[in-house]
Design a protein around this nucleic acid. Structure first.
Length: 561
RNA sequence: GCGCUCGUAGCUCAGUUGGAUAGAGCGUUGGCCUCCGGAGCCAAAGGUCGCGCGUUCGAAUCGCGCCGAGCGCACCA
């Protein structure tokens, strides 16, 4: 049990003694250091219930606390009724030992929750390469999945492949048109078809590999063949892009499976059995308005075919059937209007709480103050791959993650390509690499450090203690980020921590302040500071890896002219 | 017209679920430094939290109404 938990337990006991049973005491780390290490607003929240002024209640709470037992050196009532606590010497340093020993588990939930979660993301149609917005969804979905794992849930990452339906047909026809052009015939891309240059490129490839076969097929068979070939090629391309981007899916679920396994039929039967569908104007409707939607939605069109909605419900129903307790979908902003009906459909099936949809907003890329358009002009980015091949996967991922997903973002390409510490990614990675460099200089393996032999009470400097307190916040940040599906909180934390680390590090510049360097002459102090260096490394590495980035031991030096 | 998201420093954005004097990075200005690893360090200036009303001990945060930006409102996918 850490100091926070001990103190919280005491506060809740005292609240009960004062007549407010079942109160959850909030303990926070004040931004302002003058407010101590920990603070609670308990007295203010009890004021209404106990019908006494907050400051009086605060005094009464203080009288009943066993401060020494909780590792608190001093406490005082402040402001409108806050109680501020200052931790005893040695308590803070003790947390450092815990961090180093926990190592890769520091920040991770102590025990599994037993819950199975599924995160569905990217889910691009196999009709073209992944573009930049998919990248943001990929980075976000992957990081959210990791956060849930760190919170103790069992998590599966899934990509839903729309390999059936109209779009795919258009791909086949577009590919066929380009292929015929290659044969010297006149042909044109159909309405709603794909005009991208990648289609021409694919036509060239398939012609090189399968020319005779294509020439021998009649028109319908050829389009069908090109469709299958094109889908397979684009799926492979998307998969390779994601891998290069550092995203590994656990499962690819093809829409065609929904049809093969007759899932739409069984889903419609269940909805009908629940009395939630009706016929009207020649179509079959679902009463989504019973579950909060604006209007009822069509499941089967008057021409007898399914809307997109029907197989999508069937797919989500299947997720529940596969035993997941909770599903998170990462959708692009252009689909946000679709959320109420999907939730309504699942509510109609008896699972109103299953689905959470996270909306990923648009990304605009800016270079030299000018927006880079998503057109095919020279030098502009069209695909995700082009973007991260220029910036590096770590940088692109971090940039996508450092802003809230549900707000539009500007991707500053100049900043992304900057290799100094102005670039937040390098700021964090440099901090990690510097510490590795210290261990190299000392000739030590940081992972083999015997932290328990060091006298950590030697870490008496303000910066050192502030750093330890900062490191100790990490698990809290992870929990908060997981609850809010907000990886950007981890980014902010890492940048803030790295700022402190870099400042601490530079403060110990041997040419100026050798007594502040990690590798000082005093062996005991040196040993203690090495433990701190190790603790920092553990936290930065855990944070970076949680976000899907690497934690390098050395940065590549750029050969600049 | 209706719905969703958003509006915070010159710019890009946070804001611990309603807490104390609203923060960070970049940019700007001033001063150091050339290193246990860099274009680094320290400091300063910079705010009507879009506007108004309300809720309460307390509002950037919650509610209502305006103003503005983006997206969405199919028997398309």
């Amino acid at each position: 049990m850490n100091p926070i938990e001990r103190l919280r337990a005491q506060l809740e006991r005292v609240a009960a003694e004062l007549g407010a049973e079942g109160t959850a005491a909030q303990l926070e780390r004040p931004r302002n250091p003058e407010h101590g290490d920990l603070a609670t607003n308990l007295a203010m929240t009890l004021a209404g219930r106990l019908r006494r002024p907050p400051r009086l209640i605060a005094d009464q709470i203080l009288e009943r606390l066993s401060l020494a037992e909780a590792g608190v050196a001093a406490a005082e009532v402040a402001g409108a009724g806050f109680i501020n606590f200052r931790l005893a010497g040695g308590v803070v340093q003790g947390q450092l030992l815990h961090i180093v020993k926990a190592d890769r588990d520091f920040g991770r939930a102590a025990a599994p929750t037993g819950q199975r979660w599924q995160v569905e993301f990217v889910s691009a149609n196999p009709t073209g390469p992944l573009h930049v917005a998919h990248g943001r969804g990929a980075a976000l979905g992957d990081a959210i999945a990791s956060l849930l794992q760190w919170s103790g849930h069992e998590v599966e990452r899934e990509f839903y492949v729309n390999d059936a339906g109209v779009q795919i047909g258009k791909l086949g026809e577009s590919l066929d048109a380009r292929w015929r052009e290659l044969q010297g015939q006149s042909a044109s891309i159909p309405d709603g078809g794909y005009h991208g240059s990648y289609v021409t490129e694919l036509a060239r490839q398939v012609d090189a590999e399968q020319h005779e076969r294509l020439a021998s097929l009649d028109a319908d068979a050829r389009v069908a063949f090109l469709k299958d070939w094109g889908v397979a090629a684009l799926e492979r391309e998307q998969d390779e892009t994601l891998r290069a981007f550092g995203v590994r899916m656990d499962s690819y679920y093809p829409e065609s499976r929904v049809y093969q396994e007759k899932l739409v039929e069984t889903t419609l039967q269940e909805l009908a059995a629940r009395g939630l569908t009706y016929e009207g104007e020649g179509a079959l409707w679902l009463r989504t308005t019973d579950f909060g939607d604006d209007k009822d939605r069509v499941l089967v069109k008057s021409d007898g075919t399914y809307t997109y909605f029907a197989p999508d419900i069937a797919y989500h129903r299947d997720k529940i059937g596969r035993g997941f307790d909770h599903g998170i979908d990462i959708w692009g902003a252009d689909h946000h209007g679709y959320v109420p009906r999907m939730k309504a459909a699942l509510a109609a099936l008896g699972h109103p709480e299953f689905l959470t949809v996270e909306i990923v907003q648009m990304v605009r890329i800016v270079r030299g103050g000018e927006e880079v358009k998503m057109s095919k002009r020279a030098g502009d980015f069209v695909t995700l791959r082009e973007l991260f091949e220029e910036t590096g996967a770590d940088v692109a991922r971090y940039f996508f993650l450092m802003r809230r997903g549900d707000a539009q973002m500007l991707f500053d390409l100049d900043l992304a390509l900057d290799h100094s510490e102005k670039n937040p990614v390098y700021k964090v990675q440099y901090a990690h690499a510097r510490l590795a460099s210290i261990f190299r200089k000392a000739g030590l393996d940081p992972a083999a450090l015997e932290a328990q032999n060091a006298d950590l009470t030697r870490l008496t400097l303000r910066v050192e203690q502030d750093l330890i307190k900062q490191l100790d916040r990490f698990p809290d940040v992870v929990t908060r980020a997981a609850e809010g599906r907000s990886p950007h909180l981890v980014c902010e934390y890492l940048e803030e921590t790295s700022g402190m680390v870099n400042s601490w590090y530079h403060g110990g510049n041997p040419s100026r302040n050798p007594e502040l360097a990690v590798l000082v002459g005093d062996p005991a102090l040196r040993a203690a500071r090495l433990v701190l260096a190790r603790g920092i490394q553990v936290v930065l590495r855990n944070g970076l890896e949680l976000l899907g980035l690497t934690a390098p031991d050395r940065m590549e030096r750029e050969e600049t002219a």
